[in-house]
Amino acid sequence: MPQRFHEGDFVRVRDDYPIGHIRTPVYIRGKQGVIVKDFGAFGNPETLAYCLPTEKRELYKVRFWQQMVWSSYKGGPRDTVDLDIYEHWLEKAE
């Protein structure tokens, strides 16, 4: 059972590369961010895409600092990128 997160929790995206209909972009895998919103539970696209029986997964808005995502990022240190990520792709970070 994946754990629940709360606003302000630091999380890391799983650095994992399974095959299938994955809605977690490759560029964000392994990166660290912070939970900014809990949207509630949504059908898991990884099974929905194949019309398989699905389970609800908690969906979070996660904010990442661009300089931590792209090593050569050109822009202010405050610039961010927000992604919507399902709970089973997130792990607790320090």
Binding site: P25, R63, Q66, G76, D84, I85
Partner: peptide, 14 residues
């Protein structure tokens, strides 16, 4: 540079 640029990547149901 003082303005935060925030990109929203619509990866899910939003």
């Amino acid at each position: 540079d003082n303005v935060e640029v925030r990109v929203h990547d619509s990866t899910a149901d939003m």
